[in-house]
Design a protein around this nucleic acid. Structure first.
Lengths: 155, 155
DNA sequence: CGATGTACGACCTTTTAAGTCGTATATCAA
DNA sequence: TTGATATACGACTTAAAAGGTCGTACATCG
């Protein structure tokens, strides 16, 4: 029902953690798992996927670990999610090129849902790791909104 | 991975079908199931949920069936989805009031994701059944965009 | 070489989705 | 009033996906 998998959640947490270490910051899978109480071996496999997708780089051996492959402002939430969960489709009959389901031809909601899908995709693509801040504490203050808040309050 | 369930798909198809019958149009679950090759008994249960949620009204007996409870312009995609799949949350740790997961307290992505969730919710809430049109055929023509296209091309 | 770490595949468990079956109940029409 | 048509509803079964574990191999540093 329109949920991210836990793997994607874990991935976002880990990437955000690496981002907060600053440029050249590095960290092992085990360290991240302990910091957020995540299953270490599951997280390791997620991080490996992110390396394959060129979002992270890995370093073997003593004091090894993972680091961002590029600036946090150039990594979108969509990229992380897509690297872990695969392409993002709101319904199983998307995308069009894979033949579609038994209902194709008489299904009248497919194209409208594709548009919705594209809209969500665009939203996630614009949200960069560097935008992800917890803004709850600032409710009373007249502080300027975060970039994420601006993006998310589109309409 | 951010998918609607098939049940929600079926529900949207059925509600859209009823909408296309025009006001006072009525149709049995079996008719809809046959028209779109959907499992009849599963669809019936979905329609019953929509009746409970006051989106449809049902009529027993010969020539009975289901009909929209109100105008198609006043039924949002979100309402249909929520009636079938329950409340819409992008992650399992939302909403805040149910205690949260083991990571709460150290999870740094929860609030950003809540904002994303709210944005998607608002998007689906604005899309009414009457907005759901297939606009593929009009690619060549310089026709005005549909309401859905406007909504969906937010940015 | 040994400690520390990533890399990777196989496997198991749990949860959720999806669909089926059986039965009860309401309504209309002949 | 009886039979055909429909909805209403719960229990059950099957199938698929998510989530997590285990074992092993390989790379690097000190």
């Amino acid at each position: 029902m329109l949920k991210l998998t836990k793997k994607a959640d874990y991935g976002l947490i880990a990437v955000k953690h690496l981002a907060e270490l600053g440029p050249n910051g590095s960290c092992s899978a085990k360290d991240i798992a302990e910091a957020y109480h995540l299953p270490a071996e599951a997280l390791a496999k997620i991080l490996q996927k992110l390396v394959k997708s060129k979002l992270l780089v890995s370093h073997h051996g003593t004091n090894g670990g993972y680091a961002l492959a590029r600036d946090a402002r150039q990594i979108s939430a969509l990229e992380v999610i897509r690297a872990i969960d695969g392409p993002l489709f709101i319904t199983s009959c998307l995308p069009y090129d894979t033949g579609g389901c038994e209902q194709s031809g008489c299904c009248t909601v497919r194209e409208p849902l594709r548009q919705v899908n594209e809209s969500i995709r665009a939203l996630l693509e614009d949200i960069k790791i560097s935008d992800m801040r917890d803004s709850r504490q600032r409710h009373t203050a007249a502080a300027p909104t975060t970039q994420l808040e601006e993006l998310v309050t589109l309409r």
